[in-house]
């Protein structure tokens, strides 16, 4: 729901989300500038609990910045982010409490994994549970092993991340984010640094999460994955949302000229 241009309006055919009245996440009029450069222009977006949103678009279109504005890793210059009762207004000095509340409910997975190299895989997943959730080390390790098992890596628990492949590191990063029991997961190009085969391991874990009803926003260049796994696709260019709608409709029948051009370029590659 950008101010610029909505929206593919085709009727939702296979939406698995049970939409509630009120939006689970609501972004209103987000602007983000780095010095004189405005990288997000008045972006507004809503999503419902359990929804899977894919953000696609050319490089430099502000997709990752939008993701970082949601969890305030890069606070917006103007606008607001609301999530289930917690609202952070840009420019107002939000209390540390509100920031913590917001961040506690949002997990994030980065393109470059960002595992802590000096900690073992198990310590990577357990650390924040002990520090921020008050879990005992024993409980945290138990939970971490369950999650590592879920992403197929329980046997790597005692290794350091440097001994794991890129795909494994990214799955560990997903387990680390899930350990804090987030209600929303943000994925910032999680497979871009991986070769296609290793990327598949990660996509499989993400697909499983989506099927389990996790609310997810992913910035991705995996067009097939965006079309088949997400409920809704948001296309961005030059810091604006150009088009959004049911994944299949947007991908197969885009309305905006720039989106047509972008999708054609991706397909012809």
């Amino acid at each position: 729901m950008s101010s610029v241009s909505p929206v593919s309006t085709a009727a939702p055919s296979v939406i698995k989300v049970q939409k509630t009245e009120q939006a689970f996440l609501s972004l209103k009029g987000l602007h983000k500038s780095f010095g004189p450069y405005e990288v997000l222009h008045d972006v507004s977006l809503e999503m419902h609990k359990g929804e899977v949103l894919a953000i696609i678009g050319p490089s430099g279109s502000g997709k990752s910045t939008l993701l970082r504005c949601i969890n305030q890793l890069s606070p917006p210059t103007a606008g607001s982010v609301s999530m289930d009762g917690v609202t952070i207004e840009a420019g107002c000095s939000s209390s540390r409490n509100d920031l913590v509340k917001l961040r506690r409910r949002i997990g994030m997975v980065f393109q470059s994994f960002n595992l802590f190299p000096h900690l073992t895989v198990l310590q990577n997943v357990s650390l924040a549970q002990v520090r921020t959730m008050g879990r005992s080390k024993r409980d945290a390790d138990k939970k971490s092993l369950e999650l590592l098992d879920r992403v197929g890596l329980a046997n790597k628990a005692e290794l350091y991340p440097a001994r794991c492949s890129g795909g494994q590191q990214q799955r560990i990063a997903i387990a680390r984010a899930l350990a804090l029991e987030p209600e929303l997961m943000l994925f910032d190009e999680p497979t871009s640094a991986l070769d296609p085969e290793l990327g598949l391991e990660v996509l499989a874990v993400m697909k499983e999460l989506a099927n389990e009803g996790m609310s997810m926003i992913m910035v991705t260049h995996e067009m097939h994955f965006a079309e088949t796994v997400s409920d809704r696709v948001v296309v961005m260019a030059e810091g604006r949302i150009l088009e959004q709608g049911i994944s299949r409709e947007v991908m197969r029948n885009p309305q905006h000229e720039r989106v047509v051009q972008f999708l054609r370029a991706v397909r012809d590659r």
């Binding site: 960002n114 650390l127 921020t132 984010a177």
Partner: peptide, 14 residues
């Protein structure tokens, strides 16, 4: 120390 380490620590709410 890579910026990503600071960012990961932030999003884990440390």
């Amino acid at each position: 120390v890579p910026v990503g380490q600071y960012e990961a620590a932030h999003v884990l709410n440390l």
